[in-house]
Design a protein around this nucleic acid. Structure first.
Lengths: 237, 237
DNA sequence: GAGTGGTCTAGACCACTCA
DNA sequence: GAGTGGTCTAGACCACTCA
Protein backbone atom coordinates (compact mmCIF):
# COMPACT_ATOMS: atom_id res chain seq x y z
CA UNK A 1 0.00 0.00 0.00
CA UNK A 2 1.30 3.41 -0.97
CA UNK A 3 0.55 6.91 0.20
CA UNK A 4 -2.39 7.02 2.53
CA UNK A 5 -3.73 10.28 1.20
CA UNK A 6 -3.70 9.00 -2.39
CA UNK A 7 -5.47 5.79 -1.41
CA UNK A 8 -8.11 7.83 0.43
CA UNK A 9 -8.43 10.21 -2.53
CA UNK A 10 -8.96 7.33 -4.95
CA UNK A 11 -11.45 5.69 -2.61
CA UNK A 12 -13.45 8.90 -2.35
CA UNK A 13 -13.36 9.42 -6.13
CA UNK A 14 -14.72 5.92 -6.58
CA UNK A 15 -17.49 6.51 -4.09
CA UNK A 16 -18.49 9.82 -5.67
CA UNK A 17 -18.44 8.39 -9.18
CA UNK A 18 -20.48 5.40 -8.09
CA UNK A 19 -23.04 7.80 -6.67
CA UNK A 20 -22.57 6.87 -3.01
CA UNK A 21 -22.40 10.59 -2.39
CA UNK A 22 -24.83 12.75 -4.33
CA UNK A 23 -24.26 16.19 -5.83
CA UNK A 24 -25.02 19.07 -3.45
CA UNK A 25 -24.78 16.71 -0.50
CA UNK A 26 -21.98 17.00 2.04
CA UNK A 27 -19.27 14.43 2.63
CA UNK A 28 -18.70 13.24 6.19
CA UNK A 29 -16.81 15.85 8.17
CA UNK A 30 -13.02 15.77 8.29
CA UNK A 31 -13.31 14.58 11.86
CA UNK A 32 -15.52 11.65 10.84
CA UNK A 33 -13.25 10.77 7.91
CA UNK A 34 -10.29 10.84 10.28
CA UNK A 35 -12.01 8.17 12.36
CA UNK A 36 -13.23 6.18 9.38
CA UNK A 37 -9.82 5.94 7.71
CA UNK A 38 -7.94 5.78 11.00
CA UNK A 39 -5.54 8.55 10.12
CA UNK A 40 -4.77 12.14 11.05
CA UNK A 41 -6.77 15.14 9.97
CA UNK A 42 -3.99 16.63 7.82
CA UNK A 43 -3.87 13.42 5.81
CA UNK A 44 -7.62 13.58 5.25
CA UNK A 45 -7.23 17.20 4.25
CA UNK A 46 -4.61 16.30 1.65
CA UNK A 47 -7.06 13.88 0.07
CA UNK A 48 -9.91 16.42 0.20
CA UNK A 49 -7.75 19.14 -1.34
CA UNK A 50 -7.03 16.83 -4.25
CA UNK A 51 -10.76 16.25 -4.66
CA UNK A 52 -11.36 20.00 -4.68
CA UNK A 53 -8.53 20.63 -7.12
CA UNK A 54 -9.99 18.11 -9.53
CA UNK A 55 -13.51 19.43 -9.33
CA UNK A 56 -15.14 16.69 -7.23
CA UNK A 57 -16.02 18.78 -4.19
CA UNK A 58 -16.38 22.35 -3.03
CA UNK A 59 -15.14 23.01 0.49
CA UNK A 60 -17.28 25.49 2.40
CA UNK A 61 -15.95 26.77 5.69
CA UNK A 62 -18.15 26.06 8.67
CA UNK A 63 -20.35 23.75 6.64
CA UNK A 64 -18.42 20.93 5.02
CA UNK A 65 -17.29 19.46 1.70
CA UNK A 66 -20.08 19.58 -0.86
CA UNK A 67 -20.09 17.21 -3.80
CA UNK A 68 -20.09 19.05 -7.15
CA UNK A 69 -22.34 17.86 -9.94
CA UNK A 70 -19.69 16.65 -12.33
CA UNK A 71 -22.22 15.81 -15.03
CA UNK A 72 -22.26 19.51 -15.72
CA UNK A 73 -18.63 19.16 -16.65
CA UNK A 74 -18.48 16.44 -19.26
CA UNK A 75 -14.85 15.43 -19.40
CA UNK A 76 -12.97 18.00 -17.32
CA UNK A 77 -9.68 17.39 -18.99
CA UNK A 78 -7.43 19.57 -16.95
CA UNK A 79 -3.78 19.07 -17.47
CA UNK A 80 -2.00 16.85 -19.91
CA UNK A 81 -4.00 14.44 -21.94
CA UNK A 82 -2.64 12.47 -24.85
CA UNK A 83 -4.70 11.65 -27.90
CA UNK A 84 -5.21 8.07 -26.81
CA UNK A 85 -6.45 8.96 -23.33
CA UNK A 86 -8.72 11.53 -24.89
CA UNK A 87 -10.12 9.14 -27.44
CA UNK A 88 -10.78 6.56 -24.72
CA UNK A 89 -12.92 9.05 -22.84
CA UNK A 90 -14.83 10.04 -25.93
CA UNK A 91 -15.70 6.41 -26.46
CA UNK A 92 -15.08 6.51 -30.22
CA UNK A 93 -12.79 4.10 -31.96
CA UNK A 94 -10.17 6.20 -33.69
CA UNK A 95 -7.52 4.97 -36.06
CA UNK A 96 -3.94 6.12 -36.30
CA UNK A 97 -1.93 6.28 -39.50
CA UNK A 98 1.79 6.63 -38.85
CA UNK A 99 3.03 8.72 -41.72
CA UNK A 100 6.57 9.36 -40.48
CA UNK A 101 8.71 7.94 -37.67
CA UNK A 102 12.42 8.58 -37.98
CA UNK A 103 15.48 10.41 -36.66
CA UNK A 104 16.21 13.82 -38.16
CA UNK A 105 18.57 16.70 -37.83
CA UNK A 106 15.97 19.20 -36.67
CA UNK A 107 15.10 22.39 -38.46
CA UNK A 108 16.00 25.70 -36.87
CA UNK A 109 12.37 26.08 -35.76
CA UNK A 110 12.31 22.74 -33.94
CA UNK A 111 15.69 23.44 -32.36
CA UNK A 112 14.27 26.68 -31.00
CA UNK A 113 11.13 25.02 -29.65
CA UNK A 114 13.18 22.35 -27.88
CA UNK A 115 15.89 24.81 -26.75
CA UNK A 116 18.56 22.41 -27.96
CA UNK A 117 22.00 22.68 -29.51
CA UNK A 118 22.83 22.20 -33.20
CA UNK A 119 24.27 18.71 -32.98
CA UNK A 120 21.39 16.99 -31.19
CA UNK A 121 19.15 14.68 -33.16
CA UNK A 122 15.39 14.44 -32.80
CA UNK A 123 12.73 11.81 -33.42
CA UNK A 124 10.10 13.10 -35.80
CA UNK A 125 6.76 11.30 -35.59
CA UNK A 126 3.89 12.39 -37.82
CA UNK A 127 0.52 10.71 -37.32
CA UNK A 128 -2.89 11.29 -38.80
CA UNK A 129 -5.90 10.38 -36.66
CA UNK A 130 -9.20 9.31 -38.10
CA UNK A 131 -12.66 9.11 -36.63
CA UNK A 132 -15.42 7.45 -38.62
CA UNK A 133 -13.20 7.18 -41.67
CA UNK A 134 -12.22 10.85 -41.81
CA UNK A 135 -8.73 12.12 -41.02
CA UNK A 136 -9.37 14.87 -38.52
CA UNK A 137 -6.20 15.40 -36.47
CA UNK A 138 -2.56 15.61 -37.47
CA UNK A 139 -0.09 15.04 -34.65
CA UNK A 140 3.50 16.11 -35.21
CA UNK A 141 5.81 15.01 -32.38
CA UNK A 142 9.44 15.98 -31.90
CA UNK A 143 11.32 14.12 -29.16
CA UNK A 144 14.94 14.77 -28.19
CA UNK A 145 17.04 11.66 -28.84
CA UNK A 146 19.13 12.61 -25.83
CA UNK A 147 16.26 11.47 -23.60
CA UNK A 148 14.29 9.14 -25.87
CA UNK A 149 16.85 6.93 -27.58
CA UNK A 150 14.40 4.90 -29.67
CA UNK A 151 10.87 4.96 -31.04
CA UNK A 152 9.34 2.44 -33.44
CA UNK A 153 6.34 2.72 -35.73
CA UNK A 154 4.62 0.20 -33.47
CA UNK A 155 5.06 2.45 -30.48
CA UNK A 156 3.86 5.43 -32.49
CA UNK A 157 0.74 3.51 -33.40
CA UNK A 158 -0.01 2.96 -29.74
CA UNK A 159 0.70 5.66 -27.16
CA UNK A 160 4.09 7.38 -27.03
CA UNK A 161 3.32 8.63 -23.53
CA UNK A 162 2.64 5.18 -22.15
CA UNK A 163 5.87 3.92 -23.78
CA UNK A 164 7.84 6.74 -22.18
CA UNK A 165 6.32 6.29 -18.76
CA UNK A 166 5.86 2.53 -18.57
CA UNK A 167 8.69 1.16 -20.75
CA UNK A 168 11.38 3.80 -20.34
CA UNK A 169 10.46 4.66 -16.76
CA UNK A 170 10.66 8.39 -17.34
CA UNK A 171 8.27 10.63 -15.44
CA UNK A 172 6.37 13.32 -17.30
CA UNK A 173 5.87 16.17 -14.90
CA UNK A 174 4.41 19.27 -16.51
CA UNK A 175 3.69 20.98 -19.81
CA UNK A 176 2.95 24.30 -21.37
CA UNK A 177 0.12 24.29 -23.87
CA UNK A 178 -0.59 27.00 -26.44
CA UNK A 179 -3.68 27.03 -28.64
CA UNK A 180 -3.85 29.14 -31.79
CA UNK A 181 -5.61 29.08 -35.16
CA UNK A 182 -3.68 28.97 -38.45
CA UNK A 183 -4.15 28.57 -42.17
CA UNK A 184 -3.75 24.94 -43.21
CA UNK A 185 -0.35 24.00 -44.65
CA UNK A 186 0.23 21.85 -47.72
CA UNK A 187 0.91 18.97 -45.35
CA UNK A 188 -2.42 19.51 -43.57
CA UNK A 189 -4.20 19.43 -46.91
CA UNK A 190 -2.35 16.26 -47.92
CA UNK A 191 -2.87 14.25 -44.77
CA UNK A 192 -6.23 15.45 -43.47
CA UNK A 193 -9.76 15.44 -44.86
CA UNK A 194 -10.18 19.19 -44.64
CA UNK A 195 -13.38 19.31 -46.68
CA UNK A 196 -13.11 22.98 -47.46
CA UNK A 197 -12.29 24.27 -43.99
CA UNK A 198 -10.12 27.36 -44.16
CA UNK A 199 -8.57 27.14 -40.71
CA UNK A 200 -6.81 24.64 -38.52
CA UNK A 201 -6.59 24.68 -34.72
CA UNK A 202 -3.04 24.13 -33.52
CA UNK A 203 -2.21 22.97 -30.01
CA UNK A 204 1.48 23.40 -29.30
CA UNK A 205 2.64 21.32 -26.38
CA UNK A 206 5.98 21.62 -24.58
CA UNK A 207 6.43 18.62 -22.34
CA UNK A 208 8.85 18.38 -19.40
CA UNK A 209 10.24 15.52 -17.32
CA UNK A 210 10.37 15.54 -13.53
CA UNK A 211 13.83 17.08 -13.52
CA UNK A 212 12.37 19.99 -15.52
CA UNK A 213 14.08 19.04 -18.79
CA UNK A 214 12.14 19.82 -21.94
CA UNK A 215 12.17 16.64 -24.02
CA UNK A 216 9.21 16.90 -26.37
CA UNK A 217 7.53 19.45 -28.62
CA UNK A 218 4.21 18.48 -30.17
CA UNK A 219 1.86 20.15 -32.60
CA UNK A 220 -1.63 18.70 -32.59
CA UNK A 221 -3.45 20.09 -35.63
CA UNK A 222 -7.25 19.76 -35.54
CA UNK A 223 -9.93 20.36 -38.11
CA UNK A 224 -11.89 23.23 -36.52
CA UNK A 225 -15.31 21.56 -36.56
CA UNK A 226 -14.00 18.61 -34.55
CA UNK A 227 -11.95 20.59 -32.10
CA UNK A 228 -13.03 20.87 -28.48
CA UNK A 229 -10.99 21.80 -25.44
CA UNK A 230 -12.44 21.62 -21.95
CA UNK A 231 -10.80 22.89 -18.81
CA UNK A 232 -11.70 23.05 -15.14
CA UNK A 233 -9.87 25.70 -13.19
CA UNK A 234 -9.89 27.08 -9.69
CA UNK A 235 -9.16 30.72 -9.16
CA UNK A 236 -6.12 31.51 -7.05
CA UNK A 237 -6.98 34.05 -4.40
CA UNK B 1 -0.77 40.09 8.49
CA UNK B 2 -2.62 37.16 6.97
CA UNK B 3 -1.76 33.56 6.29
CA UNK B 4 1.89 32.86 6.80
CA UNK B 5 2.16 30.48 3.89
CA UNK B 6 0.61 32.99 1.48
CA UNK B 7 2.93 35.74 2.67
CA UNK B 8 5.91 33.44 2.20
CA UNK B 9 4.63 32.38 -1.23
CA UNK B 10 4.26 35.98 -2.36
CA UNK B 11 7.68 36.86 -1.00
CA UNK B 12 9.27 33.98 -2.91
CA UNK B 13 7.41 34.90 -6.11
CA UNK B 14 8.74 38.44 -5.79
CA UNK B 15 12.29 37.23 -5.25
CA UNK B 16 12.13 34.86 -8.22
CA UNK B 17 10.61 37.49 -10.50
CA UNK B 18 13.20 40.04 -9.44
CA UNK B 19 15.89 37.54 -10.36
CA UNK B 20 17.24 36.99 -6.84
CA UNK B 21 17.01 33.30 -7.66
CA UNK B 22 18.07 32.25 -11.13
CA UNK B 23 16.56 29.59 -13.38
CA UNK B 24 18.03 26.12 -12.87
CA UNK B 25 19.39 27.16 -9.49
CA UNK B 26 18.04 25.68 -6.29
CA UNK B 27 16.15 27.57 -3.61
CA UNK B 28 17.39 27.28 -0.02
CA UNK B 29 16.37 23.95 1.48
CA UNK B 30 13.08 23.63 3.32
CA UNK B 31 15.08 23.42 6.53
CA UNK B 32 16.85 26.71 5.78
CA UNK B 33 13.61 28.41 4.79
CA UNK B 34 12.03 27.17 8.03
CA UNK B 35 14.78 29.02 9.92
CA UNK B 36 14.69 32.09 7.70
CA UNK B 37 10.93 32.61 7.99
CA UNK B 38 10.77 31.35 11.58
CA UNK B 39 8.00 28.89 10.92
CA UNK B 40 7.39 25.16 10.66
CA UNK B 41 8.37 22.99 7.74
CA UNK B 42 4.79 22.16 6.74
CA UNK B 43 4.07 25.86 6.36
CA UNK B 44 7.14 26.28 4.15
CA UNK B 45 5.99 23.27 2.16
CA UNK B 46 2.56 24.83 1.60
CA UNK B 47 4.25 27.87 0.10
CA UNK B 48 6.59 25.76 -2.04
CA UNK B 49 3.71 23.62 -3.31
CA UNK B 50 1.97 26.77 -4.47
CA UNK B 51 5.14 27.81 -6.29
CA UNK B 52 5.31 24.40 -7.98
CA UNK B 53 1.61 24.48 -8.89
CA UNK B 54 2.05 27.84 -10.56
CA UNK B 55 5.14 26.90 -12.51
CA UNK B 56 7.79 28.78 -10.53
CA UNK B 57 9.76 25.81 -9.26
CA UNK B 58 10.26 22.11 -9.82
CA UNK B 59 10.71 20.06 -6.66
CA UNK B 60 13.23 17.27 -7.02
CA UNK B 61 13.42 14.72 -4.24
CA UNK B 62 16.80 14.46 -2.57
CA UNK B 63 18.05 17.57 -4.35
CA UNK B 64 15.86 20.58 -3.72
CA UNK B 65 13.51 23.09 -5.34
CA UNK B 66 14.80 24.20 -8.72
CA UNK B 67 13.69 27.50 -10.22
CA UNK B 68 12.00 27.04 -13.61
CA UNK B 69 12.83 29.39 -16.46
CA UNK B 70 9.53 31.16 -16.76
CA UNK B 71 10.64 33.12 -19.80
CA UNK B 72 9.95 29.96 -21.71
CA UNK B 73 6.33 30.39 -20.70
CA UNK B 74 5.33 33.88 -21.73
CA UNK B 75 2.16 34.53 -19.76
CA UNK B 76 1.14 31.23 -18.17
CA UNK B 77 -2.47 32.14 -17.82
CA UNK B 78 -3.74 29.15 -15.96
CA UNK B 79 -7.17 29.40 -14.54
CA UNK B 80 -9.65 32.17 -14.78
CA UNK B 81 -8.56 35.40 -16.36
CA UNK B 82 -10.91 38.17 -17.39
CA UNK B 83 -10.40 40.22 -20.50
CA UNK B 84 -9.11 43.20 -18.55
CA UNK B 85 -6.51 41.20 -16.62
CA UNK B 86 -5.45 39.59 -19.86
CA UNK B 87 -5.15 42.87 -21.72
CA UNK B 88 -3.07 44.33 -18.88
CA UNK B 89 -0.56 41.53 -19.24
CA UNK B 90 -0.37 41.92 -22.98
CA UNK B 91 0.51 45.58 -22.48
CA UNK B 92 -1.78 46.82 -25.24
CA UNK B 93 -4.36 49.50 -24.70
CA UNK B 94 -7.68 47.95 -25.65
CA UNK B 95 -11.00 49.72 -25.86
CA UNK B 96 -14.39 48.40 -24.85
CA UNK B 97 -17.64 49.30 -26.54
CA UNK B 98 -20.67 48.37 -24.45
CA UNK B 99 -23.29 47.42 -26.97
CA UNK B 100 -25.91 46.03 -24.58
CA UNK B 101 -26.38 46.07 -20.81
CA UNK B 102 -29.86 45.27 -19.60
CA UNK B 103 -32.13 42.79 -17.82
CA UNK B 104 -33.80 40.15 -19.97
CA UNK B 105 -36.00 37.13 -19.70
CA UNK B 106 -33.43 34.64 -20.89
CA UNK B 107 -33.80 32.46 -23.94
CA UNK B 108 -34.17 28.75 -23.52
CA UNK B 109 -30.50 28.29 -24.42
CA UNK B 110 -29.28 30.70 -21.72
CA UNK B 111 -31.61 29.11 -19.16
CA UNK B 112 -30.05 25.78 -19.93
CA UNK B 113 -26.50 27.07 -19.67
CA UNK B 114 -27.23 28.66 -16.31
CA UNK B 115 -29.36 25.73 -15.09
CA UNK B 116 -32.02 28.14 -13.92
CA UNK B 117 -35.80 28.17 -13.67
CA UNK B 118 -38.17 29.93 -16.08
CA UNK B 119 -39.03 32.93 -13.92
CA UNK B 120 -35.48 34.11 -13.16
CA UNK B 121 -34.18 37.17 -14.92
CA UNK B 122 -30.67 37.62 -16.26
CA UNK B 123 -28.35 40.53 -17.01
CA UNK B 124 -27.23 40.49 -20.61
CA UNK B 125 -24.01 42.37 -21.30
CA UNK B 126 -22.60 42.47 -24.83
CA UNK B 127 -19.24 44.15 -25.33
CA UNK B 128 -16.97 44.49 -28.31
CA UNK B 129 -13.25 44.81 -27.62
CA UNK B 130 -10.88 46.64 -29.91
CA UNK B 131 -7.12 46.60 -30.24
CA UNK B 132 -5.45 49.16 -32.49
CA UNK B 133 -8.79 50.35 -33.83
CA UNK B 134 -10.06 46.92 -34.88
CA UNK B 135 -12.90 45.12 -33.11
CA UNK B 136 -11.46 41.69 -32.42
CA UNK B 137 -13.37 40.14 -29.51
CA UNK B 138 -17.08 39.98 -28.73
CA UNK B 139 -17.90 39.21 -25.09
CA UNK B 140 -21.43 38.10 -24.29
CA UNK B 141 -22.07 37.83 -20.56
CA UNK B 142 -25.15 36.43 -18.86
CA UNK B 143 -25.38 36.93 -15.10
CA UNK B 144 -28.19 35.62 -12.90
CA UNK B 145 -30.04 38.55 -11.29
CA UNK B 146 -30.60 36.33 -8.25
CA UNK B 147 -26.92 36.80 -7.36
CA UNK B 148 -25.99 39.98 -9.21
CA UNK B 149 -28.84 42.43 -8.58
CA UNK B 150 -27.44 45.33 -10.60
CA UNK B 151 -24.94 46.12 -13.35
CA UNK B 152 -24.44 49.48 -15.06
CA UNK B 153 -22.86 50.36 -18.39
CA UNK B 154 -20.05 52.00 -16.41
CA UNK B 155 -19.29 48.74 -14.65
CA UNK B 156 -19.44 46.86 -17.92
CA UNK B 157 -16.92 49.28 -19.39
CA UNK B 158 -14.52 48.47 -16.57
CA UNK B 159 -14.25 44.94 -15.16
CA UNK B 160 -17.34 43.00 -14.15
CA UNK B 161 -15.18 40.60 -12.15
CA UNK B 162 -13.60 43.32 -10.07
CA UNK B 163 -17.09 44.79 -9.43
CA UNK B 164 -18.37 41.40 -8.30
CA UNK B 165 -15.42 40.66 -6.07
CA UNK B 166 -14.57 44.11 -4.73
CA UNK B 167 -17.93 45.93 -4.66
CA UNK B 168 -20.38 43.10 -4.10
CA UNK B 169 -18.00 41.03 -1.96
CA UNK B 170 -18.81 37.79 -3.73
CA UNK B 171 -16.04 35.23 -4.15
CA UNK B 172 -15.49 33.64 -7.52
CA UNK B 173 -14.23 30.15 -6.90
CA UNK B 174 -13.99 28.04 -10.03
CA UNK B 175 -15.02 27.78 -13.65
CA UNK B 176 -15.40 25.37 -16.48
CA UNK B 177 -14.05 26.57 -19.81
CA UNK B 178 -14.85 25.14 -23.22
CA UNK B 179 -13.14 26.22 -26.41
CA UNK B 180 -14.64 25.48 -29.82
CA UNK B 181 -14.63 26.98 -33.31
CA UNK B 182 -17.83 28.15 -35.03
CA UNK B 183 -19.09 29.95 -38.09
CA UNK B 184 -19.57 33.66 -37.39
CA UNK B 185 -23.13 34.74 -36.62
CA UNK B 186 -24.84 37.83 -38.03
CA UNK B 187 -24.08 39.53 -34.73
CA UNK B 188 -20.38 38.67 -35.03
CA UNK B 189 -20.33 40.18 -38.51
CA UNK B 190 -22.10 43.31 -37.28
CA UNK B 191 -20.01 44.02 -34.21
CA UNK B 192 -16.57 42.74 -35.18
CA UNK B 193 -14.08 43.60 -37.91
CA UNK B 194 -13.97 40.11 -39.35
CA UNK B 195 -12.10 41.07 -42.50
CA UNK B 196 -13.05 37.95 -44.36
CA UNK B 197 -12.31 35.38 -41.69
CA UNK B 198 -14.60 32.40 -41.97
CA UNK B 199 -14.39 31.14 -38.41
CA UNK B 200 -14.68 32.44 -34.89
CA UNK B 201 -13.13 30.96 -31.76
CA UNK B 202 -15.67 30.69 -28.96
CA UNK B 203 -14.67 30.35 -25.31
CA UNK B 204 -17.64 29.34 -23.21
CA UNK B 205 -17.13 30.04 -19.55
CA UNK B 206 -19.29 28.77 -16.70
CA UNK B 207 -18.37 30.65 -13.54
CA UNK B 208 -19.15 29.55 -9.99
CA UNK B 209 -19.13 31.26 -6.59
CA UNK B 210 -17.51 29.80 -3.49
CA UNK B 211 -20.71 28.05 -2.47
CA UNK B 212 -20.62 26.26 -5.85
CA UNK B 213 -23.54 28.21 -7.33
CA UNK B 214 -23.35 28.87 -11.06
CA UNK B 215 -24.00 32.57 -11.51
CA UNK B 216 -22.50 33.50 -14.88
CA UNK B 217 -22.29 32.16 -18.40
CA UNK B 218 -19.98 33.93 -20.82
CA UNK B 219 -19.17 33.55 -24.48
CA UNK B 220 -15.97 35.21 -25.53
CA UNK B 221 -15.87 35.24 -29.32
CA UNK B 222 -12.46 35.86 -30.88
CA UNK B 223 -11.31 36.54 -34.41
CA UNK B 224 -9.13 33.48 -35.10
CA UNK B 225 -5.96 35.35 -36.07
CA UNK B 226 -5.91 37.19 -32.74
CA UNK B 227 -6.78 34.25 -30.57
CA UNK B 228 -4.21 32.72 -28.25
CA UNK B 229 -4.71 30.53 -25.22
CA UNK B 230 -1.82 29.53 -23.00
CA UNK B 231 -1.94 27.02 -20.21
CA UNK B 232 0.52 25.58 -17.72
CA UNK B 233 -0.46 22.22 -16.30
CA UNK B 234 1.04 19.64 -13.99
CA UNK B 235 0.30 16.02 -14.61
CA UNK B 236 -1.51 14.18 -11.86
CA UNK B 237 0.24 10.94 -11.07
C1' DG C 1 -22.39 26.43 21.95
C1' DA C 2 -21.53 22.50 19.11
C1' DG C 3 -19.80 21.47 14.72
C1' DT C 4 -17.39 22.72 10.67
C1' DG C 5 -13.11 23.66 7.93
C1' DG C 6 -8.31 26.72 7.75
C1' DT C 7 -3.90 27.35 9.60
C1' DC C 8 0.10 26.23 12.14
C1' DT C 9 3.34 23.58 15.07
C1' DA C 10 7.19 20.32 16.42
C1' DG C 11 8.23 16.31 15.82
C1' DA C 12 8.92 11.50 13.43
C1' DC C 13 10.35 8.20 9.84
C1' DC C 14 11.31 7.39 5.20
C1' DA C 15 13.39 7.43 0.19
C1' DC C 16 16.32 9.65 -2.49
C1' DT C 17 20.94 12.17 -3.98
C1' DC C 18 25.66 12.85 -3.80
C1' DA C 19 30.32 12.89 -2.25
C1' DG D 1 26.61 9.62 6.11
C1' DA D 2 24.91 14.22 5.62
C1' DG D 3 21.48 16.64 3.29
C1' DT D 4 17.37 16.76 0.65
C1' DG D 5 12.26 16.52 0.02
C1' DG D 6 7.65 13.30 0.93
C1' DT D 7 4.52 11.62 4.21
C1' DC D 8 2.27 11.32 8.50
C1' DT D 9 0.97 12.37 13.35
C1' DA D 10 -1.52 14.53 17.40
C1' DG D 11 -2.34 18.36 18.88
C1' DA D 12 -3.57 23.59 19.08
C1' DC D 13 -6.20 27.85 18.06
C1' DC D 14 -9.09 30.22 15.10
C1' DA D 15 -13.21 31.88 11.96
C1' DC D 16 -17.23 30.56 10.32
C1' DT D 17 -22.21 28.34 10.28
C1' DC D 18 -26.37 27.22 12.30
C1' DA D 19 -29.78 26.13 15.65
Amino acid sequence: MKNKYLVIYQEMVKQIEQGNFHPNQFLPSEHDLTDKFETSRETIRKALNLLAQNGYIQKIRGKGSMVIDRNKFDFPVSGLVSFKELADKMGEKPKTFVHTCHLINPSHYIQEQLKMSDSDQVWEVIRARSFAGKYIILDKDYLAKKYISFISRDIAEQSIYSYIENELGLVISFAKKEIIVEEPTEEDRDLLDLEGFHNIVVIKNYVYLDDATLFQYTESRHRPDKFRFVDFARRNH
